[in-house]
């Protein structure tokens, strides 16, 4: 994830403090990014969920390898080996570690390939929603007045829309011809409002800070104040929100696919696999468990990581201690 790359870069630039800080009369402290990174590094939940995310990403990247190892194509149908003579999918066994589906396709291979769609759609729609939300939220919060009123109403309208109804209508209109781009567009459209609202609120409070007044008193223009002074303070909440938006986008994508809006059928997708599994879960539990488990693991890992990142930026003990010493 690129945002974490930036974070790491920030940390790398951090100067190391001398051991004898108190001798020089310096209160030993670290920069905000460094502090967050240090906390994250020591957070077991963050490490665990990062490992899971890396594993899922590995599944996506190495899906062709899984295909090669099992000898099963992504959507090849193995009616002889994958189905019993009665036409029922076979359960987990040596040839089909996670079993087969009703067409005799290898679920393991399909779950691996499905990770590609989930991650791609999840990450890119979250990124798009965050980008749009930050830009619009900043404009609304910074300029206020008519701009704010108009944009804030737009956010409200987007948030008030019943997205499931909208999605069903969309399925009815273009069902079956959807594609990954439509997925991303729909998901980010329904997600950016929440981001924009949060960013707007942040900007409104940052705008009142003395350092913003200081920038104005130095003669800084609007663009400079927005990007040099306000934006860096939005990064922490935006990173947190991004990491929480990824899992909800993945779920959203699965929902759309479940409803029939998404990548066209032969391409494996966790959501559409679950949909197809509906009729088969009774004999073929593996048909539900593995795609569902992958979806659950991914979203859980992203959510937990998001929580950890938030705690790292704004830990409770820090606030507590600030009050004690003030």
């Amino acid at each position: 994830m690129s945002t974490f790359g930036e974070l790491v870069e920030e940390v790398a630039q951090e100067p190391q403090l001398g051991a004898a800080g108190y001798e020089a009369g310096v209160i030993e402290a670290k920069g905000p990014w460094r502090l967050a990174w240090d906390r994250l590094r020591h957070d077991r939940v963050a490490i665990g969920s990062s490992v899971v995310i890396v594993l899922i990403a590995g599944m996506a990247v190495f899906a062709p390898l899984a295909s090669a190892l099992t000898g099963h194509g992504m959507d090849a149908q193995y009616h002889l080996t994958g189905l019993t003579s009665a036409g029922v999918p076979v359960g987990p066994r040596a040839h089909f570690p996670w079993g087969a589906d009703e067409e005799g396709r290898d679920i393991l291979v399909r779950v691996f390939y499905g990770a590609r769609i989930s991650l791609l759609v999840g990450v890119s729609s979250a990124a798009l929603a965050v980008a749009g939300g930050v830009v619009l939220g900043m404009l609304a919060g910074f300029f206020g007045g008519v701009v704010d009123t108009a944009l804030a109403r737009l956010f409200d309208v987007v948030l008030a829309m019943p997205y499931l109804v909208f999605a069903l209508a969309l399925v009815a209109a273009i069902g079956g011809q959807g594609g990954i781009l439509i997925d991303i567009a729909v998901i980010s459209f329904f997600s950016f409002g929440a981001v924009a609202r949060i960013v707007r609120g942040q900007v409104l409070s940052i705008k009142e800070k003395e350092y913003i007044e200081a920038a104005h008193s130095l003669g800084a223009g609007s663009l400079r104040v927005m990007f040099i002074d306000i934006f860096p303070n939005l990064l922490a909440p935006v990173i947190v929100y991004f990491s929480l938006l990824v899992p909800s986008s993945i779920v959203f994508e699965a929902t759309l696919a479940f409803l029939g809006l998404g990548v066209p059928p032969p391409t494996p997708d966790w959501g559409s696999m679950l949909q197809e599994a509906i009729n088969w879960y009774n004999p073929a539990w593996w048909y539900v468990v593995f795609p569902g488990g992958a979806l659950l693991a991914t979203t859980l890992a992203f959510n937990l990581l998001g929580d950890s990142v938030r705690d790292a930026f704004d830990p409770r003990y820090n606030r507590l201690f600030a009050r004690e010493t003030e």
Binding site: E210, Y211, A214, L218
Partner: peptide, 18 residues
């Protein structure tokens, strides 16, 4: 602005923490 400058009250609030 170059000729008139301000010093602010709050040493925590007047410097951008990031």
């Amino acid at each position: 602005r170059r000729r008139v400058q301000m010093i602010f009250q709050d040493p925590y609030g007047s410097l951008n923490p990031r």
